[in-house]
Protein backbone atom coordinates (compact mmCIF):
# COMPACT_ATOMS: atom_id res chain seq x y z
CA UNK A 1 0.00 0.00 0.00
CA UNK A 2 1.09 3.57 -0.76
CA UNK A 3 0.16 6.47 1.46
CA UNK A 4 1.88 9.81 0.92
CA UNK A 5 0.61 12.90 2.67
CA UNK A 6 1.79 16.35 1.62
CA UNK A 7 1.54 19.14 4.18
CA UNK A 8 0.52 21.51 1.38
CA UNK A 9 -1.31 20.48 -1.79
CA UNK A 10 0.49 23.35 -3.53
CA UNK A 11 3.76 21.40 -3.72
CA UNK A 12 2.33 18.65 -5.94
CA UNK A 13 0.27 21.18 -7.88
CA UNK A 14 3.39 23.20 -8.71
CA UNK A 15 5.33 20.08 -9.70
CA UNK A 16 2.62 18.86 -12.06
CA UNK A 17 2.17 22.37 -13.51
CA UNK A 18 5.91 22.39 -14.19
CA UNK A 19 5.97 19.21 -16.25
CA UNK A 20 2.55 18.62 -17.79
CA UNK A 21 3.15 20.85 -20.81
CA UNK A 22 6.23 18.76 -21.66
CA UNK A 23 4.99 15.24 -20.98
CA UNK A 24 1.43 13.97 -20.90
CA UNK A 25 1.74 10.40 -19.68
CA UNK A 26 4.25 9.20 -17.13
CA UNK A 27 4.94 6.49 -14.62
CA UNK A 28 5.27 7.44 -10.95
CA UNK A 29 7.63 4.91 -9.37
CA UNK A 30 6.96 4.53 -5.67
CA UNK A 31 9.23 2.93 -3.07
CA UNK A 32 9.79 3.21 0.65
CA UNK A 33 13.38 4.45 0.37
CA UNK A 34 13.22 6.72 -2.66
CA UNK A 35 9.70 8.10 -2.27
CA UNK A 36 8.24 8.89 -5.67
CA UNK A 37 10.46 9.18 -8.75
CA UNK A 38 9.50 9.99 -12.31
CA UNK A 39 11.48 9.94 -15.52
CA UNK A 40 9.78 11.08 -18.70
CA UNK A 41 10.90 12.33 -22.08
CA UNK A 42 8.93 14.64 -24.35
CA UNK A 43 7.59 13.45 -27.71
CA UNK A 44 10.33 15.23 -29.63
CA UNK A 45 12.97 13.47 -27.46
CA UNK A 46 14.73 16.74 -26.77
CA UNK A 47 13.73 17.30 -23.13
CA UNK A 48 13.90 14.77 -20.31
CA UNK A 49 12.34 15.27 -16.90
CA UNK A 50 13.70 13.56 -13.80
CA UNK A 51 11.70 14.11 -10.64
CA UNK A 52 12.62 12.82 -7.20
CA UNK A 53 10.23 13.41 -4.34
CA UNK A 54 12.05 11.89 -1.40
CA UNK A 55 10.03 10.71 1.60
CA UNK A 56 11.13 14.03 3.18
CA UNK A 57 8.79 15.86 0.75
CA UNK A 58 5.89 14.28 2.61
CA UNK A 59 4.57 14.82 6.09
CA UNK A 60 3.89 11.08 6.20
CA UNK A 61 5.05 8.49 3.72
CA UNK A 62 4.74 4.73 3.56
CA UNK A 63 5.06 2.38 0.63
CA UNK A 64 4.99 -1.28 1.66
CA UNK A 65 5.77 -2.61 -1.78
CA UNK A 66 7.37 -0.98 -4.83
CA UNK A 67 4.68 0.11 -7.26
CA UNK A 68 4.29 1.97 -10.52
CA UNK A 69 1.41 4.39 -11.04
CA UNK A 70 0.75 5.22 -14.69
CA UNK A 71 -0.73 8.72 -14.74
CA UNK A 72 -2.22 11.06 -17.30
CA UNK A 73 -0.94 14.41 -16.05
CA UNK A 74 -3.74 16.36 -17.69
CA UNK A 75 -6.28 14.31 -15.72
CA UNK A 76 -4.23 14.58 -12.54
CA UNK A 77 -4.06 18.35 -13.07
CA UNK A 78 -7.85 18.54 -13.28
CA UNK A 79 -8.19 16.79 -9.93
CA UNK A 80 -5.45 18.84 -8.27
CA UNK A 81 -7.33 22.02 -9.19
CA UNK A 82 -10.20 20.84 -6.96
CA UNK A 83 -8.19 21.28 -3.76
CA UNK A 84 -6.89 24.42 -2.11
CA UNK A 85 -3.18 25.16 -1.98
CA UNK A 86 -2.96 24.92 1.81
CA UNK A 87 -4.94 21.66 2.10
CA UNK A 88 -3.29 18.45 3.19
CA UNK A 89 -3.07 16.25 0.12
CA UNK A 90 -2.81 12.49 0.48
CA UNK A 91 -2.12 10.00 -2.31
CA UNK A 92 -3.38 6.50 -1.55
CA UNK A 93 -3.01 3.35 -3.64
CA UNK A 94 -3.63 -0.29 -2.80
CA UNK A 95 -1.20 -2.97 -3.97
CA UNK A 96 -1.68 -3.65 -7.70
CA UNK A 97 -3.96 -0.63 -8.03
CA UNK A 98 -6.17 0.32 -10.96
CA UNK A 99 -6.85 3.75 -9.51
CA UNK A 100 -5.20 6.35 -7.32
CA UNK A 101 -7.13 7.92 -4.47
CA UNK A 102 -6.44 11.63 -3.93
CA UNK A 103 -7.71 13.16 -0.69
CA UNK A 104 -7.74 16.86 0.22
CA UNK A 105 -8.27 17.92 3.82
CA UNK A 106 -8.93 21.50 4.77
CA UNK A 107 -6.83 22.34 7.84
CA UNK A 108 -9.40 24.61 9.46
CA UNK A 109 -12.75 23.23 8.42
CA UNK A 110 -13.93 19.65 8.69
CA UNK A 111 -13.97 19.28 4.95
CA UNK A 112 -12.56 16.25 3.19
CA UNK A 113 -12.66 15.85 -0.60
CA UNK A 114 -11.88 12.52 -2.23
CA UNK A 115 -11.15 11.81 -5.87
CA UNK A 116 -10.29 8.63 -7.68
CA UNK A 117 -8.07 8.79 -10.75
CA UNK A 118 -7.93 5.88 -13.18
CA UNK A 119 -4.42 4.55 -13.75
CA UNK A 120 -2.97 3.63 -17.12
CA UNK A 121 -0.46 1.12 -18.44
CA UNK A 122 2.25 3.30 -19.85
CA UNK A 123 5.00 1.77 -21.90
CA UNK A 124 8.01 4.04 -21.64
CA UNK A 125 11.70 3.40 -22.14
CA UNK A 126 14.02 4.50 -19.37
CA UNK A 127 17.19 6.35 -20.24
CA UNK A 128 20.34 5.79 -18.25
CA UNK A 129 21.89 9.07 -17.26
CA UNK A 130 25.47 8.68 -16.11
CA UNK A 131 26.94 11.33 -13.87
CA UNK A 132 28.62 13.67 -16.26
CA UNK A 133 31.70 15.77 -15.67
CA UNK A 134 30.41 19.23 -16.43
CA UNK A 135 32.40 22.05 -17.95
CA UNK A 136 30.44 24.69 -16.04
CA UNK A 137 27.96 24.99 -13.23
CA UNK A 138 25.91 28.14 -12.61
CA UNK A 139 23.63 28.74 -9.65
CA UNK A 140 21.46 31.84 -9.87
CA UNK A 141 18.04 33.15 -8.83
CA UNK A 142 15.40 31.19 -10.74
CA UNK A 143 13.35 34.38 -11.24
CA UNK A 144 16.24 36.00 -13.15
CA UNK A 145 16.68 33.00 -15.42
CA UNK A 146 12.92 32.74 -15.91
CA UNK A 147 12.70 36.39 -16.99
CA UNK A 148 15.51 35.94 -19.53
CA UNK A 149 13.94 32.79 -21.00
CA UNK A 150 10.52 34.45 -21.30
CA UNK A 151 11.74 37.82 -22.58
CA UNK A 152 14.20 36.48 -25.14
CA UNK A 153 11.65 34.05 -26.57
CA UNK A 154 9.83 37.07 -27.96
CA UNK A 155 12.96 37.92 -29.97
CA UNK A 156 14.38 34.58 -31.04
CA UNK A 157 13.72 30.85 -31.25
CA UNK A 158 17.10 30.20 -29.64
CA UNK A 159 18.98 31.31 -26.56
CA UNK A 160 22.74 31.15 -26.42
CA UNK A 161 24.47 30.63 -23.07
CA UNK A 162 28.13 31.63 -23.00
CA UNK A 163 30.11 30.99 -19.84
CA UNK A 164 33.56 32.26 -18.99
CA UNK A 165 35.28 32.43 -15.64
CA UNK A 166 34.18 36.02 -15.16
CA UNK A 167 30.59 35.86 -16.35
CA UNK A 168 27.62 34.09 -17.82
CA UNK A 169 26.09 35.72 -20.87
CA UNK A 170 22.63 35.01 -22.30
CA UNK A 171 22.28 36.08 -25.89
CA UNK A 172 19.49 36.03 -28.46
CA UNK A 173 19.52 36.98 -32.11
CA UNK A 174 16.30 37.44 -34.00
CA UNK A 175 14.79 39.16 -37.00
CA UNK A 176 14.34 42.47 -35.22
CA UNK A 177 17.84 42.53 -33.77
CA UNK A 178 19.78 41.00 -30.91
CA UNK A 179 20.16 41.28 -27.18
CA UNK A 180 22.24 39.99 -24.30
CA UNK A 181 22.29 39.93 -20.53
CA UNK A 182 25.50 39.41 -18.60
CA UNK A 183 25.72 38.24 -15.01
CA UNK A 184 28.91 38.31 -12.95
CA UNK A 185 29.39 36.11 -9.90
CA UNK A 186 28.51 37.72 -6.61
CA UNK A 187 27.66 36.68 -3.09
CA UNK A 188 24.70 38.21 -1.29
CA UNK A 189 25.23 37.50 2.40
CA UNK A 190 21.85 38.88 3.46
CA UNK A 191 19.91 36.97 0.80
CA UNK A 192 22.03 33.93 -0.20
CA UNK A 193 19.43 32.87 -2.81
CA UNK A 194 20.16 36.11 -4.68
CA UNK A 195 23.81 35.11 -5.15
CA UNK A 196 25.27 34.08 -8.47
CA UNK A 197 27.86 31.34 -8.44
CA UNK A 198 29.85 30.27 -11.48
CA UNK A 199 32.14 27.22 -11.40
CA UNK A 200 34.04 26.76 -14.62
CA UNK A 201 36.48 24.10 -15.77
CA UNK A 202 36.22 25.07 -19.41
CA UNK A 203 34.37 27.90 -21.12
CA UNK A 204 31.22 26.85 -22.99
CA UNK A 205 29.05 28.33 -25.68
CA UNK A 206 25.79 26.44 -26.19
CA UNK A 207 22.51 27.22 -27.91
CA UNK A 208 19.11 25.98 -26.74
CA UNK A 209 15.58 26.10 -28.09
CA UNK A 210 13.68 28.99 -26.46
CA UNK A 211 10.45 26.96 -26.47
CA UNK A 212 11.98 24.27 -24.23
CA UNK A 213 13.57 26.78 -21.88
CA UNK A 214 10.15 28.36 -21.43
CA UNK A 215 8.74 25.00 -20.39
CA UNK A 216 11.63 24.50 -17.96
CA UNK A 217 11.23 27.85 -16.19
CA UNK A 218 7.68 26.93 -15.21
CA UNK A 219 9.40 25.15 -12.30
CA UNK A 220 10.68 28.48 -10.95
CA UNK A 221 7.70 28.43 -8.58
CA UNK A 222 9.31 25.45 -6.83
CA UNK A 223 12.65 26.95 -5.89
CA UNK A 224 14.15 30.42 -5.63
CA UNK A 225 17.38 29.19 -7.22
CA UNK A 226 18.26 27.18 -10.31
CA UNK A 227 21.47 25.28 -11.01
CA UNK A 228 22.48 24.96 -14.65
CA UNK A 229 25.20 22.46 -15.59
CA UNK A 230 26.68 22.78 -19.03
CA UNK A 231 29.07 20.67 -21.07
CA UNK A 232 30.25 21.34 -24.59
CA UNK A 233 28.13 19.54 -27.23
CA UNK A 234 26.11 17.68 -24.56
CA UNK A 235 22.68 18.01 -22.94
CA UNK A 236 22.40 20.66 -20.24
CA UNK A 237 21.00 19.99 -16.80
CA UNK A 238 18.61 22.48 -15.22
CA UNK A 239 17.91 21.65 -11.59
CA UNK A 240 15.34 22.97 -9.14
CA UNK A 241 15.69 21.76 -5.56
CA UNK A 242 12.59 20.48 -3.76
CA UNK A 243 12.20 20.52 0.04
CA UNK A 244 13.72 17.03 -0.22
CA UNK A 245 14.67 15.85 -3.68
CA UNK A 246 14.73 17.65 -7.01
CA UNK A 247 13.13 18.37 -10.34
CA UNK A 248 15.69 18.12 -13.14
CA UNK A 249 15.39 18.84 -16.82
CA UNK A 250 17.92 17.55 -19.35
CA UNK A 251 17.83 19.52 -22.59
CA UNK A 252 19.67 18.64 -25.80
CA UNK A 253 21.43 21.65 -27.34
CA UNK A 254 21.11 22.94 -30.86
CA UNK A 255 23.98 22.48 -33.29
CA UNK A 256 25.27 24.66 -36.08
CA UNK A 257 24.04 23.58 -39.51
Amino acid sequence: MLEGKFDQASLLKKIIDSIRDSVKLCNFNCSQNDGITVQAIDDSRVLLIALKMDPGCFQEFRCDRDMVLGLDLESLGKILKQGNNEDYLTLIAEDNPDSLLIVFEDKKKDRISEFSLKLMDIDSDVLTIDDMDNDCSITMPSADFSKIARDFKTMSESLQIIVTKESVKFKAEGQIGSGSVIFKPHTDLDNPDESIKIDMNQPVNLTFGAKYLNDIVKASTLSSTITIKLTDKAPALFEFKLPSGYLRYYLAPKFED
Binding site: V46, D125, L127, S158, E173, G209, P235, A252, E256
Partner: peptide, 14 residues
Protein backbone atom coordinates in the same frame (compact mmCIF):
# COMPACT_ATOMS: atom_id res chain seq x y z
CA UNK B 1 19.18 28.94 -36.35
CA UNK B 2 20.87 25.57 -35.89
CA UNK B 3 19.57 22.01 -35.77
CA UNK B 4 17.88 20.77 -32.62
CA UNK B 5 19.81 17.83 -31.12
CA UNK B 6 18.08 14.77 -29.61
CA UNK B 7 18.79 13.15 -26.25
CA UNK B 8 18.97 9.62 -27.67
CA UNK B 9 22.50 10.18 -28.91
CA UNK B 10 23.69 10.92 -25.38
CA UNK B 11 21.71 8.69 -23.03
CA UNK B 12 21.40 4.92 -23.27
CA UNK B 13 17.95 3.34 -23.39
CA UNK B 14 17.70 0.61 -20.75
Amino acid sequence: SGTQGRLDGFFKVS
